[in-house]
Write a protein that binds this DNA or RNA. Structure first.
Lengths: 350, 350
DNA sequence: TTGTACGCGTTATCAT
DNA sequence: ATGATAACGCGTACAA
């Protein structure tokens, strides 16, 4: 009962505690702080009796392990950074949902950071490092190579999901955008549509571009034959409103407008469909066939019944966490580029 | 150059550093750790020259302030716990979106925890305490009074959003559920519908129950007159599918089915509408009037154009963060129960 | 304006 | 099975 730093020189009875620490529990239970620490961590080599007594004392005193101090000591937290940009993209939300519960099940905690402004990407990623995160998942934007080196140096694993990603030291997981684009092309060709289009946000996103290019490659032979035509369509935002306004713009001229459109993502497709049906009086799929990508929940709804290419958010999350865990566990893995299979889901828009 | 704990006894040149600390920067820049600390925090009383030199050295060495150590020292982190249950409820997502960006703008970081299992609520809330969170926002479930006392004791502010909440030491923010229910009732009465219904998830939620009760109170006089009838409708889940299946169940009998339904939330209303329109061939609003609650993004979409009661997620988030900040700032405020005004939005489903 | 010295609460290590 | 002790990296009185 002599040791430790407790009675620092003078014999004063310490300050009136505000927050209960392991020292308090130790004193109350008549053991050392080490023992308390071990009991709280369910360390094997502690006697059942002691463990029980200490845990009861802890509960009674209202003691909670201070994870900050713990992380400090271990030099690593159990936080995993989640880089996103808002919660507006339906598929990303579904992915984050899966990711969050899986991260939690693995004993980690998600620290969300929003980087709506791409210029903030670098700063935000570096800020994350301040929290001694165990790993980071990037679902929006693209970290610069310079940021990458910081992570590499600290040996903090990074996983890029559905991004271009040429980041050294980071794993990249994408769904099979190429195959998805091809499946969409095949379907539209088979349906007999002649004036095809691919709708994506202005400037494009990596995923969207790949999907579009695969689509175009696939229809190239028929294009060359002159059997069909193709137009590249552009919307101002990668969401419902973007698709809606693009619909108004591109579909007004019923004679020459595309009659089969592949959208870079479902959310855009929904807007496009609503514009076609409710603003222009077009029949979908009669006058216009629409194919999306992702298979978000809304695509399954009665009002849309969207034909689309499905990528499974749960599997994507599984791969992400699996990868993260192995790297955190110490496996010195080489950077990998994983591809998640996609599946064509035919509903009623083509 | 003698001070601190640096050279602990022996004169060994220390270990090969893996991670850069303020001591490294201090040594490299020829200043003390205190100075480095002050420079990184942009402390006023540091000379421009020193600050610049130190910050450059820091950047060059790849130094990042360790927020864990910092939090340890200050005995509080800049983490704010966000208690939710999955990311499936559209309005909650919109709210979280606003909340996350506002929390971030206030210099805090959101730590998300998912409590899909209500039994885990207590444990999860207490776990949050381990992270020395500066505050907590509860958007799902209801913390027990016992949990409340732990927070009270630690002086960590809690805000309950759209919950029943009788938590000591916590603020409760709700939208004006009563007024919303009344607005819905008024609209349905005015529309001339006779067989009214209120659709909510089995067992009910606090918000839903209040809305329903207000609705019923409002139509009570007309009910007593025998001019109209009312049925309480129940679905198995508080989402699209729940509404959809409820539609199939309650609307099949066209003669006696309700012709005006107020739904506890928009998401349910969407499912109900789709079942009515696409499975049963009913006209909305001709055969069936539908009113929702929340005004989620999908309610504005062409396919739905749902008449609803709007609660503004951004304002809710604003109130939440404002409240949190003041409490964190030290204001010893009494528990408050705030009410956010709602607004009736008439679209095309009634 | 800058440096010295201490303490934050925990866990790992070593000793018993 | 348990205890004593030394870090972990930082912020901040206090001193200069």
């Amino acid at each position: 009962m002599s040791g430790d730093r407790q009675k620092s020189g003078n014999g004063v009875e310490k300050k009136a505690h505000q927050v209960v620490t392991s020292a308090d529990v130790a004193r109350e239970a008549g053991v050392s702080r080490s023992t308390v620490s071990r009991c709280m961590a369910d360390d094997e080599r502690i006697s059942e009796a002691t463990r029980k007594r200490v845990q009861e004392t802890a509960a009674q005193l209202g003691y909670h392990v201070n994870k900050i101090a713990s992380s400090m000591n271990r030099r690593k937290s159990d936080l995993i950074g989640l880089v996103t940009s808002g919660l507006t993209d339906p598929f990303r939300i579904e992915f984050l949902d899966c990711l969050i519960s899986q991260i939690q099940q693995s004993g980690y905690r998600p620290l969300v950071i929003d980087v709506s402004d791409p210029d903030q990407m670098g700063i935000s990623m570096l800020n994350l490092l301040q929290y001694q995160v165990a790993g980071v998942v990037v679902t929006s934007g693209s970290p610069s190579p310079e940021v990458g080196t910081h992570y590499l140096k600290r040996n903090v694993p990074v996983v890029l999901v559905n991004r271009a990603g040429r980041l050294e030291g980071a794993d990249v997981i994408n769904c099979d955008n190429v195959h998805g684009g091809e499946l969409a092309a095949d379907m539209l060709l088979k349906s007999g549509k002649k004036r095809l289009g691919f709708l994506n946000v202005r400037g494009g996103t990596y995923s969207g571009n790949v999907r579009g290019e695969a689509f175009v490659s696939r229809i190239a032979p028929r294009l060359a034959d002159g059997e069909i035509s193709f137009t590249s369509l552009v919307c101002d935002s990668a969401d419902y409103d973007g698709g809606f306004h693009a619909g108004l713009k591109y579909l007004a001229d019923r004679e020459n407008a595309p009659d089969g459109i592949f959208c870079a993502k479902d959310h855009i497709a929904l807007g496009l469909m609503d514009a076609a049906r409710f603003e222009l009086g077009l029949k979908v799929p009669g006058d216009l066939a629409v194919i999306g990508f992702d298979d978000i929940a809304a695509a399954r709804q009665g009002a849309y019944q969207l034909t689309t290419v499905r990528q499974r958010a749960d599997q994507l999350a599984e791969m992400t966490v699996e990868r993260l865990r192995r790297r955190i566990g110490g496996d010195a893995l080489g950077d990998e580029r994983l591809v998640l299979p996609v599946e064509f889901i035919r509903r009623q828009t083509v």
